[in-house]
Design a protein around this nucleic acid. Structure first.
Length: 915
RNA sequence: GGGGAAUUAGCUCAGCUGGUAGAGCGCUGCGAUCGCACCGCAGAGGUCAGGGGUUCGAGUCCCCUAUUCUCCA
């Protein structure tokens, strides 16, 4: 019986390294994961920290795929990009990391999903206070004995060492200095940074203080990391002290649980072990009875089950890119390890259930999204099982050829193209006594990486360069288009024909930067405005001396770039112009944009409240909305959505657009887009009672202005993403007119009322099919009849029966069956050559067919070769099998000669064979 | 964002170096049976995903598009 321990059992701590009792506070020492989490948050809350809820695993920061650290939600604050929510904060943040996924289950403490407890100071308290509280929490609240603790400080951080030694009273021998790699934190090459200090738990203090090696993870476990953000690093690498110094800390919840529960690794804490037990139950095994390999599989399942449940809970769906791909990979690893353990039926949903049961109390959102989570798990598992089945079949084909080993290329093809895991290929190969060329596999993988890299070069046009250059130096453009469609603007910069310039004349293609503009710059899915810039004498009319037509407006950083053409006059930097937006176009874009918001709201209402935007386009005459949805939207749902939206339009809701702090907007329930970066102050577009979104676009004042909404199509763009295209406002009329014209034309063409067209076309289709068949049958019969008449004309040459004849009005297939039929009739010595015009009125197309009997082939004649030669005379070519071949040509007038020549040739050759 | 692959009858899939589109299951009818299952016979069912190209001729070769699968970032 192994001596190691599993689920924590109170009162049986003797066998494991256990924290020495201290004279702690009256409240009982925390022990379970939930107690540890609560105790940490309570400790810091009592010390003036605002408790913050865990942020989503999907970060607001578009530069990272997932929330990988407890401080990530506060990163904008540390970087000075966002206001601090409070001087001090504390949180338990869920995190996911997959960089060394291979280590999960193999080491004691690698996780994909984990929870990070943290306390943060934003320019408030600093090093001394942070260290003191960390120590008080560790020893006082968690009851860890000082003899069991070791701290590390950065090599040059004398200040921290002094605090630990003198203020806290840590044994100097148990303060270890570490290098940058371990104890200096930075979020990037430049920006805020500073030294760290960590607290380690020592499982074997009896080994003494003299040979402390913190890298030895059988003896030590790091559980608390304190980052002292005190410098700013510039591009030259120079460190300057920060005015407002920050504290960022992290305590691994799972690690503290391992320490306090006295178990040998994180997986056997109450935060994960119930999942291991659930998986073991499904496999019909006992965790403690398994070898290392089996235990590892259970640990992987336990760890990954938490991760996938949380990921789906936060709105990630499995896909082949981005975080969806991470989710898929995790899911598939769970399935694979389940199979290794002998689970032969779908079990992911059961693991999801167990995970929700385990974490639902701390994360109630999991309970709300239970159905979605389980459905996604089931769907994805089924998909993977299909992949595996297909891969096994392909591998069986490879094995059937009895190779000496599975080549790297073969293994890689299975993996790369069919998603069949290398480990499985190895496993199955082993069962057949074969090995896999893993080195070759790695090589192929590297090649594929290189290919991807080489192809990923971006296209940089010179025009873009010039614009970038101008935009980088120009001041930010002030946007006036929310309130005005016409505005006086000053030209700040010009690009003419791709080159920066100070003057542009009539006919030039130009890009202009203005100090302020009423033109909407393309962004948030909405296209840029069109319109004109007027200058010279009368700037308010088209009689103006200068006219620049603006075809589009894009944004480059905060600069609006107006692209267009100078129609009249010339423009110089510094000119004052009147910018006038094409109001009709703008109105159409606004109708489409507001309609897009209504569409999203309707989708949430009709299909799934969890639907999230995946992309959007608002043009003048249409709108396109992409969203996450695992299945197609049914036509009934589409009708419902249309009705709902047109209802909202008819209800004439007045929009309320206002700017507010992002926190306030989110609290009010405004829909923000994942991956989109927002400023502190955001614009909220509210259709009261219907939709509230963060949006910088332009909108109608009242939904009634939209007039009408019509869905044009629903389709898929990628796995898990659907697209709806629709029209709104004036564009609907154009769309309906177009459709109406088509229906009218069809009606005239088919001599039917619009309602009868479908039946009429169906009937015509049937009729067409039937007559086509009748025609084919008649042709066949005709060919046969003509052929039968030809049979008598066969000429005997020795043992051979020679028949060369012309047969017009028969297509290729008919000619072939006629030739075959005749050859059968004439026996093994038959050499039948038929030629003709499939359409006697068309001399441009000739068909030739040859059918040779066995004896003819034996005599060295092959139909394929023979007919090719014949066809040359008709300006064509051909080929086929030895017994039956077909050829074609373009010259009908040469047919007679070609047939005569063929007959001559055969007769000679047969005569020679006789000779 | 960049690779690889798939798309053929209602379903699962064959179809070789271009030369008359096939199998199994399912379906319909007939036979056999008291009846059912099994079985026997016959039959229906295909714009070979769509579009363009090469060729005398394309399911097959090339390009584009769509959808699905899959790997990499």
């Amino acid at each position: 019986m192994p001596s190691e321990r599993h689920a924590p059992r109170p009162g049986s701590m003797a066998a494991a390294p256990s924290p020495a009792p201290t004279d702690g506070p009256a409240s009982p020492r925390p022990r379970s994961g939930a107690e540890i989490r609560a105790a940490f948050l309570r400790f810091y809350e009592q010390r003036g920290h605002r408790p913050m809820p865990s942020a989503s695993l999907i970060p607001d920061d578009p530069t990272v795929l997932l929330t990988i650290a407890g401080m990530l939600p506060f990163k904008p604050v540390f970087l000075g990009q966002a206001e601090r929510p409070a001087p001090r904060a504390t949180s338990s943040q869920k995190c996911i990391r997959t960089n060394d996924i291979e280590n999960v289950g193999r080491t004691a403490r690698h996780h994909t999903f984990f929870e990070m407890l943290g306390n943060f100071s934003f320019g408030d308290y600093f090093k001394e206070q942070a260290i003191a509280w960390a120590w008080e929490l560790s020893t006082g609240v968690f009851g860890l004995a000082p003899e069991n603790l070791v701290v590390s400080v950065f090599r040059e951080d004398d200040e921290a060492e002094a605090i630990w030694r003198d203020t806290v009273g840590v044994n100097p021998k148990r303060i270890i200095r570490m290098d940058e790699a371990d104890n200096f934190w930075a979020s990037g090459p430049t920006g805020p940074c500073g030294p760290c200090s960590e607290i380690y738990y020592d499982f074997r203090p009896e080994l003494g203080d003299d040979a402390i090696d913190l890298e030895d993870d059988t003896r030590f476990i790091e559980f608390y990391n304190l980052v002292f953000m005190q410098y700013n690093r510039d591009a030259q690498g120079t460190l300057t002290p920060l005015a407002a110094r920050n504290i960022d800390t992290g305590m691994g919840l799972e690690r503290m649980a391992q320490i306090l529960q006295g178990v040998p690794n994180n997986y056997e804490t109450d935060l994960i072990y119930p999942l291991i037990e659930a998986a073991a139950g499904l496999a019909g095994v006992e965790y403690r009875g398994l070898d290392e390999k089996g235990k590892t599989s259970l640990k992987v399942i336990g760890d990954h089950s938490r991760a996938v449940t949380q990921l789906i809970g936060d709105g990630v769906t499995a896909s082949n890119l981005g975080r969806g791909y991470i989710l898929r990979r995790l899911l598939r690893r769970v399935v694979r390890h389940g199979r290794l353990l002998g689970i032969d039926k779908p079990f992911l949903a059961a693991m999801g259930e167990a995970s929700i049961a385990l974490m639902g109390e701390a994360y109630p959102q999991l309970l709300e999204r239970r159905a979605v989570i389980l459905a996604e798990l089931e769907r994805e598992e089924a998909r993977f099982l299909e992949t595996l089945e297909r891969g096994e079949k392909l591998l069986a084909d490879v094995l059937a050829s009895q190779p000496s080993q599975i080549s790297g290329a073969q293994a890689f093809e299975l993996y790369d193209t069919y998603g069949f895991p290398l480990e499985l290929t190895e496993e199955i190969a082993e069962e057949h006594g074969l090995t896999v060329d893993v080195a070759g596999f790695e090589l192929a993988m590297e090649e594929q990486r290189q290919r991807a890299k080489a192809a990923a070069v971006s296209i940089d046009l010179t025009l873009q360069e010039a614009i970038d250059q101008v935009a980088a130096t120009a001041a930010a453009t002030t946007f006036k288009g929310y309130e005005a469609l016409e505005h006086p603007s000053c030209v700040l910069a010009l690009v003419v024909n791709g080159e920066p310039a100070t003057l542009a004349g009539a006919g030039d293609q130009v890009q202009l930067v203005l100090d302020s503009t009423p033109f909407y710059g393309e962004g948030g899915g909405q296209v840029g405005d069109r319109g004109v810039l007027l200058g010279g004498g009368d700037q308010t009319s088209v009689d103006a001396g200068v006219i620049v037509s603006i075809e589009g407006v894009s944004r480059n950083r905060s600069v609006f770039v107006h692209s267009g053409r100078i129609e009249r006059g010339c423009v110089a930097v510094g000119d004052l112009l009147t910018a006038r937006v094409d109001a009709a176009c703008r109105r159409r874009a606004q109708a489409n944009h507001t309609a897009t918001h209504l569409l999203q709201a309707a989708l949430k209402q009709v299909v799934d409240p969890g639907i999230g935007q995946a992309g959007s386009l608002v043009d003048f005459d249409r709108l396109r909305f992409d969203f996450h949805c695992p299945r197609a939207v049914t036509s009934a749902e589409l009708e419902q959505i249309e009705a709902l939206i047109n209802g909202w339009i008819a209800e004439a809701h007045t929009l309320e657009v206002q700017e507010m702090a992002i926190e306030k907007a989110k609290a009010a329930g405004a829909v923000a887009m994942f991956g989109e970066k927002y400023a502190d102050v955001v614009r909220v577009v509210d259709v009261p009672g219907v939709s509230m979104e963060l949006c910088g676009g332009t909108h109608v004042a009242n939904t009634a202005e939209i007039g009408l909404f019509k869905i044009v199509s629903e389709s898929g763009v990628a796995a898990g993403i659907r697209r709806i295209e629709a029209v709104a406002g004036p564009a609907v009329l154009a769309y309906l007119n177009e459709r109406d014209a088509v229906v009218k034309q069809l009606g005239e063409r088919f001599k039917a009322q619009p309602g009868e067209i479908v039946d009429r076309v169906a009937a015509l289709q049937d009729e067409l099919k039937a007559s086509g068949k009748a025609l084919a049958a008649a042709r066949g019969e005709l060919a046969l009849a003509k052929a039968a008449a030809l049979a008598d004309k066969a000429e005997r040459v020795g043992d051979f029966q020679l028949l060369v004849a012309r047969l017009d009005g028969v297509d290729g297939a008919g000619l072939q069956s006629a030739a075959l039929g005749l050859a059968d009739q004439l026996g093994e010595g038959a050499a039948v050559v038929l030629g003709g015009l499939p359409d006697p009125s068309d001399l441009g197309k000739v068909i030739l067919v040859a059918a040779f009997g066995k004896a003819v082939i034996a005599a060295g004649q092959q139909a394929g070769k023979f007919i090719g030669g014949v066809a040359k005379a008709c300006g064509g070519g051909g080929g086929g099998r030895p017994n039956l071949a077909q050829a074609g040509g373009r010259d009908g007038t040469a047919l007679v000669g070609a047939l005569r020549q063929a007959e001559q040739q055969l007769r000679e050759q047969f005569g020679a064979a006789l000779g």
